[in-house]
């Protein structure tokens, strides 16, 4: 059961979106998320919906698969919408005891709900179509200018990719330790929340010890292979923008332009 957890949830199909440079996808997602907060009209969301729909269609990731990702945040979604509906002051439509529903509340609740859904779908689309390796590579390159400010950009991206490599190994190890402890009478299943949390101690201690040992070994192996930080390193798979990527940037610009025109001049 524990091995079913996947991080990043990359959806392996071949599509235009999958083949884009990760930097385009990162920038595009960022711009898209910011754009969602720039306007306050339903027509704006219509434009965002059309754009998102087009990208989903191009990515060839099934819609059901994407929407399943929303399940994880459904509680958050209800809270946000609920708070907005009940707590926004304005023209009261319905009232019971201390609860009031206002016109403005309904409106802003709907906005927040749509925003959140678009935001989650948009950003998960990025992780569906980009392998974790590509993602860390893209991040390293995009954050490259911050190296001048002595930010450890290369080190952070190296840490991320090593963490990704060791997740399945440590999960397997957790499984093993769990079985070993269960064989000696440890009980991970029964009891209340506190008892359950306490029962994790004999699991976590050996896991941490082993993780440190692995880290030590890995550091030695990396040094033995001449690793000495990002200085003077070459890349086996350097990121290069192609025609496809420039077109994608053009599309994003087009989306922003359309959004601006439509929300500003056509239907305010």
């Amino acid at each position: 059961m524990i091995r079913d957890i996947t991080i990043g949830q990359y959806y392996p199909v071949d599509s235009v979106i999958h083949r884009l440079d990760p930097r385009v996808k990162l920038m595009g997602t960022l711009i898209y998320i910011i754009s969602l907060f720039l306007f306050k009209s339903f027509t704006g969301y219509l434009v965002a919906l059309v754009f998102l729909g087009a990208v989903i269609k191009l990515s060839r990731v099934p819609l059901g698969y994407i929407l399943r990702g929303l399940k994880a945040v459904i509680v958050l979604l209800f809270f946000t919408i609920g708070f907005n509906i009940f707590l926004t002051p304005g023209q009261v439509i319905w009232q019971a005891w201390v609860f009031k529903i206002t016109r403005e509340g309904l409106r802003s609740g709907a906005f927040m709900g749509i925003r959140l859904i678009f935001l989650i779908v948009g950003s998960s689309l990025m992780t569906f179509t980009t392998t974790p390796n590509h993602l860390t590579d893209g991040l390293e390159r995009l954050l490259g200018p911050f190296k001048r400010l002595h930010m450890p950009v290369h080190e952070v991206s190296m840490m991320m990719s090593i963490a990704l490599r060791f997740i399945p190994i440590l999960l397997e190890e957790t499984d093993k330790i769990m079985k070993a402890q269960s064989a000696r009478g440890a009980d991970f299943e029964s009891g209340g929340l506190i008892k359950k949390a306490k029962s994790l101690v004999p699991l976590l201690v050996p896991l941490f010890v082993s993780a440190f040992r692995r880290a030590n070994d890995l550091a030695m192996a990396m040094e033995a292979r001449c690793y000495r930080g990002g200085e003077g390193r070459t890349k086996m798979k350097p990121l290069k923008y192609g025609r496809r990527d420039y077109i994608a940037y053009g599309m994003i610009a087009l989306y922003l332009g359309a959004l601006f025109l439509i929300t500003r001049y056509l239907w305010k």
């Binding site: 390796n133 070994d217 890995l218 030695m220 192996a221 690793y227 003077g232 070459t234 890349k235």
Partner: peptide, 28 residues
Amino acid sequence: FQNPDNQIIANVVEEDVGFGPENIGVPT
């Protein structure tokens, strides 16, 4: 080294093999 898991750095075989040459600055 002894433990094969603790000396492979990358998530793809070819990238791991490329790790050493990358470190010593071999052209792509």
